[in-house]
Simulated scan of single mutants.
Amino acid sequence: MSTEEVSPAQIESTRKTGARLRAEIGQRIAVVTQARAAELLGVSPSTVSRSVQDLDDACNLLAALGYQLAPIDAVVVSKDDLQALERMAYKYLQVRIERA
C-alpha cells in the first residue's frame, strides 16, 4: 500500500478523467441504445439501466487506476514506443532531405 499522500490536484485530475470516461461511455450508449446493449449482453434492458446508474463509480475507479478508453479498432502504443517511432521517422526524413 502506498504511504504517499494524495494531493487535491490528483483528486481533481482523477475526477475530471472519470467524468470524461463517463461522457464517452454515455455517448456510445446513446448511439448503440440501452435496448441493443441489453440484447448483445443477453440481459434485460432494466439490467443495463441499473448498470448505467453505477457507471459513475466505475468510471472514477478506472480513472484512479490510470485507465483510458479506446475504440475496439484502435491501436494503442506506449509513450516510449511512440517516441521511438517519431525518432525513426525523423531520422528517415532527415536523410531523405539531405539526399535531395
Rank of each mutant, 00 (worst) to 15 (best):
A64T: 00
S2L: 04
R87Q: 09
P8H: 07
G26N: 09
S44M: 08
M88H: 05
A74K: 00
T33W: 01
Q27V: 06
Q34T: 08
L55T: 02
L69R: 03
V76N: 01
I72Y: 07
A100M: 15
S51E: 14
Y92N: 07
V95R: 14
V31F: 05
T47M: 11
T14N: 05
Q27M: 10
Y67G: 00
E98M: 11
E86Q: 09
R96F: 12
A100C: 11
Q10G: 09
E12Y: 09
L85C: 05
Q10F: 07
Y92V: 03
I29Q: 02
E86R: 12
P45A: 06
A30E: 15
L41A: 15
S49M: 08
T3I: 04
A38D: 06
T17P: 00
S44H: 12
I25D: 02
T14E: 06
A30Q: 15
P8F: 09
A58L: 11
L41F: 12
L41R: 14
Q10R: 13
R28A: 14
L85M: 14
R22C: 06
A23E: 10
L40R: 10
E4N: 03
I29G: 02
T47N: 12
K91L: 10
E5N: 05
R50G: 11
A89F: 04
R28W: 07
V31N: 03
L41W: 05
Y90C: 01
A70V: 06
E5V: 13
S2H: 04
S44G: 12
A37V: 15
T14G: 03
L93T: 08
L21Y: 10
Y67K: 03
V76W: 06
L93V: 10
V95P: 00
A63F: 04
A89S: 12
R15I: 11
V48K: 04
S78M: 02
A19H: 10
R36F: 01
V32R: 09
L65Q: 13
D73I: 02
A58H: 06
I11N: 02
E5G: 00
L41C: 11
A74F: 03
Y67F: 14
G18S: 05
T33C: 08
D80N: 09
V52R: 13
R96Y: 08
T33G: 08
L40T: 03
Y67A: 02
A63S: 08
R50D: 15
I11P: 00
A30C: 03
D81Y: 02
A37L: 15
P45F: 09
A74L: 00
S7I: 07
S46E: 14
I97Y: 08
I29N: 02
L93D: 14
A38N: 04
D57W: 07
L82S: 08
A19G: 08
Q68V: 12
N60L: 14
T14P: 00
I29L: 15
M1A: 09
D56I: 09
T14C: 05
P71R: 12
L55Y: 06
G42N: 09
